[in-house]
Simulated assay, not measured.
Amino acid sequence: MKIHGKLNYLEMAAVDIEATKAFFSSAFDWHFTDYGADYTAFSDVGLDGGFYRAPLCSKAEQGGALLVFYSSTLEETRNDVVRAGGIILKEIYDFPGGRRFHFAEPSGNEFAVWSEPA
């Protein structure tokens, strides 16, 4: 939904667009629309956006924005991420208000997944 002054779209670099698409399709059931060989878009995942081909990635430790998914089954989602080829950067841990883990997808971009306290 387009609302003035609200976030509407997110674009991220991807070294390997095909591997990134395969990962998100497998781990989170995302669907993509390709716009040429160097750009792919996603929608209906909470925030629309896309990946563009570039030799860069976003990591929180380097000041990149950390995008955080929600999961009602944190351990199951962690297993789905690993099965799809994600690399766990921080195992499940408690934080004030819940639990979460961090992972990198095949192009190296860091994401997190959180859930309510156990």
Rank of each mutant, 00 (worst) to 15 (best):
M1V: 13
K2N: 07
H4M: 10
K6N: 11
L7S: 07
L7D: 09
N8G: 08
N8H: 08
Y9G: 02
Y9S: 03
Y9C: 05
L10I: 15
M12A: 08
M12E: 04
M12C: 01
V15N: 09
D16R: 08
D16T: 09
I17D: 05
E18W: 01
A19G: 03
T20Y: 11
K21E: 13
F24I: 11
A27C: 04
A27E: 00
W30E: 00
H31D: 14
H31A: 15
H31K: 15
F32V: 08
F32A: 03
F32P: 01
G36V: 12
G36I: 13
Y39I: 03
T40E: 08
T40N: 03
F42Q: 01
D44C: 05
V45Q: 12
G49V: 10
G49W: 10
F51H: 01
R53S: 08
R53D: 02
L56T: 07
L56E: 15
C57P: 04
K59N: 11
K59M: 12
K59H: 13
A60P: 09
E61W: 10
Q62L: 13
G64E: 04
A65T: 14
A65I: 14
A65V: 14
L67N: 11
Y70N: 12
Y70V: 09
T73E: 13
E76F: 03
T77N: 09
T77W: 08
R78D: 01
N79D: 14
R83A: 15
E91A: 15
I92A: 02
I92Q: 00
Y93C: 08
R99I: 04
R99V: 04
R99S: 06
R100I: 01
F101K: 01
H102D: 05
A104D: 07
E105Y: 07
E105I: 06
P106R: 02
S107K: 01
G108Q: 10
G108T: 05
S115I: 08
E116C: 05
P117G: 09
A118N: 12
